[in-house]
Amino acid sequence: MGFEPHEPEQRSQLNSTLLKADITVSELWLQYFSMSGAAGEYEVNAYVEGLISLPAVQRDLLAMAAREIMSGTP
């Protein structure tokens, strides 16, 4: 699976959010998984590092998970 044209920007925004909010990949993955995320923690870590691509729906779910952590929503 190749990278979609806008995927690097999505990854960059996610990484920026994680840094600003001091969110670890493990915290992100746990929230994402609780929202029915399909990727495993290693896959999420690899995505954040830019090593693999994820489907758009999973990328959107990761962004939602990060926003929920930032807002304090369980």
Results as ranks from 00 to 15, higher is better:
A21K: 08
E4K: 08
Y47H: 07
Q31G: 03
E27F: 01
D60A: 14
F3S: 02
S34Y: 05
M64H: 11
N15A: 03
N45T: 09
G40K: 13
H6R: 13
G37T: 02
M64A: 15
Q13L: 09
L14H: 11
D60H: 13
L19G: 01
M64E: 14
L14E: 01
M70C: 14
E49L: 14
S36K: 13
L30I: 13
A46F: 08
Q10Y: 10
R11V: 03
A66Q: 03
R59M: 10
Y32R: 07
M35Y: 11
N45C: 11
I69T: 04
R11E: 10
E9R: 07
A66E: 07
L61V: 02
V25G: 06
W29V: 02
P55V: 02
H6W: 13
S71T: 12
Q10N: 12
T17N: 06
A39G: 00
L14T: 04
A21F: 04
Q58P: 00
R67V: 12
I23Y: 08
A66V: 03
V44Q: 00
M1K: 00
L62P: 00
S53P: 04
M64I: 14
G72E: 00
G72P: 08
E9N: 12
L19V: 10
E7D: 15
M64V: 14
E41H: 08
P74A: 13
D22E: 14
L18K: 02
T24C: 06
Y42C: 09
M70Y: 06
Y47E: 09
N15T: 04
H6L: 15
R67G: 12
T73V: 15
E68P: 10
M70K: 15
W29M: 08
P74K: 05
P74S: 10
D22N: 14
L62S: 02
E43S: 12
K20M: 05
L18G: 01
S53N: 11
S71L: 15
D22A: 13
Y42F: 08
S36F: 05
A65N: 02
A65R: 00
R11H: 04
A65P: 11
G50Q: 01
A39N: 02
A65T: 07
L14V: 09
F3E: 05
P55R: 04
T17D: 02
S34V: 05
G72K: 04
M1T: 03
A56K: 11
L18P: 05
G50V: 05
A21Y: 09
T17R: 11
A63K: 11
Q31S: 06
A63C: 05
A56I: 08
G50A: 03
S34M: 13
W29L: 07
L61H: 05
